[in-house]
Design a protein around this nucleic acid. Structure first.
Ligand code: MN
Ligand code: MN
Ligand code: MN
Ligand code: MN
Lengths: 218, 218
DNA sequence: ACAAATATTTAGATTTGTCTAAATATTATT
DNA sequence: AATAATATTTAGACAAATCTAAATATTTGT
């Protein structure tokens, strides 16, 4: 597959939410930041190659073969993102653009060894699951910290309240997007929590807990 | 620069031995495994872009700007090769093809951090020098082990005698291409050597020493 | 059910990088 | 110096990926 074909395959995969759902030409065009006419040309080609099912005016979906390719691309993209954060000190929001390029490097040994080098990570820095070599992975869901049972660990992926005071609080307490958080204990009396974040355990009020989103593996 | 333009720039650089030497259309075509007519088209474009000097029928050379680009590509290529060998357990002869792809990834932060992650290596797994961010590097030369002064360290890059018995000897003594060898001591009486290779010191006869090529930094 | 709005495809053009075959320039040989 | 051999460029074609403008199909609203 060419770089461009690969990016279209990923776009169809993501728009279809990982299922073999049919997606519209315009949706793909928007995702790819291109024109609908370009999409029509490309999906015809993908269809010819056995990667996608395409019926004029009826949208496009991935074949099983196409889905395999998509999963392998997602795997590569997310492993590279882990590498950039864990080994090269990239921050949460800098990795995507570079991973978008690295995912197209062709070498099976490269990606297998990278996986090993990183200790076979299960999720990327955004908390999204990394498919195995066979394309298997666990689903993840986004929940507020106060809604998950004690003992759960997840990745901090967002805030409900994005006011400056709250963001300042997070900064002062060294809580950042992309951090892994373990919900250590819950105080029934006031709904406050003890959480473990980067080796240290801190105490947060219920109000904080109801404004932090975690991505957890089911 | 596009991927293709970058590969042409590197080809002109290497054929010109790192100087701004003029190289012929056919030489570039052979190096790039393409046709001379394609080279003519491309060098015209590189000339328009201020990367190369081109006079019809007279060959092509890099401008100072072109040389800067070439050095940055060589830097990226060689850093990735070190990464593949040091971190991902690739062997000496597997790295080039993958580095040929990785060198085109666009991210200044990526390459700076990779350099740091690898401990600012001076040479790649083939013993070739890695240009600094500013494009500076030390020249290296290839010499037989018995010709270098005691105390010199270099990378094993080849053999003079490639007969099966010799190669078997190297294998048995765990001497492989790409290994760093320190010439520890020389016995004047019989011309034999003590060499340090991967933590352990071994003794080799003069006959072995006269058949091993080292690449050393001047 | 029909018109209007929206979505999608087709036609034709452009850029990049490549190729083959033919033309032209340079270099080597006698 | 003329001819032969070699090197290089030009002309014209093609595939990939994109675009704009026009044509056509589908969906929506009354
Ligand atoms: Mn990403
Ligand atoms: Mn991509
Ligand atoms: Mn190489
Ligand atoms: Mn390359």
């Amino acid at each position: 597959m060419t770089l461009s074909e690969e990016d279209y395959i990923k776009a169809i995969y993501h728009l279809g939410k990982g299922e073999n759902t049919t997606v519209s030409t315009n949706a793909v065009a928007e995702q790819m930041e291109t024109k609908p006419s370009s999409v029509t040309d490309m999906v015809k080609k993908l269809s010819d190659k056995g990667v996608a099912n395409y019926k004029p005016y009826k949208g496009v979906s991935l074949t099983e073969y196409g889905k395999k390719i998509a999963l392998s691309l997602v795997r590569k993209h997310r492993l590279w993102e882990v590498f950039l954060v864990e080994k090269l000190n990239f921050s949460w929001d800098e990795v995507h653009e570079v991973a978008e390029q690295l995912e197209h490097i062709k070498s099976e040994k490269l990606i297998d060894q990278l996986d090993k080098h990183l200790g076979f990570p299960q999720v990327d820095p955004h908390g999204d699951p990394i498919p195995s070599k066979k394309g298997e992975f666990k689903k993840t869901i986004k929940k507020l910290l106060n809604e998950v049972p004690v003992g759960t660990s997840g990745i901090c992926v967002g805030v409900k309240d994005s006011s400056p005071p709250f963001l300042k609080f997070l900064d002062k307490n060294k809580i950042a997007l992309g951090d892994t958080i373990l919900v250590h204990d819950k105080e029934e009396f006031d709904g406050s929590f003890d959480i473990k974040i980067k080796e240290s355990t801190i105490h947060i009020s219920n109000q904080i807990a109801t404004n932090l989103y975690l991505k957890i593996t089911e």
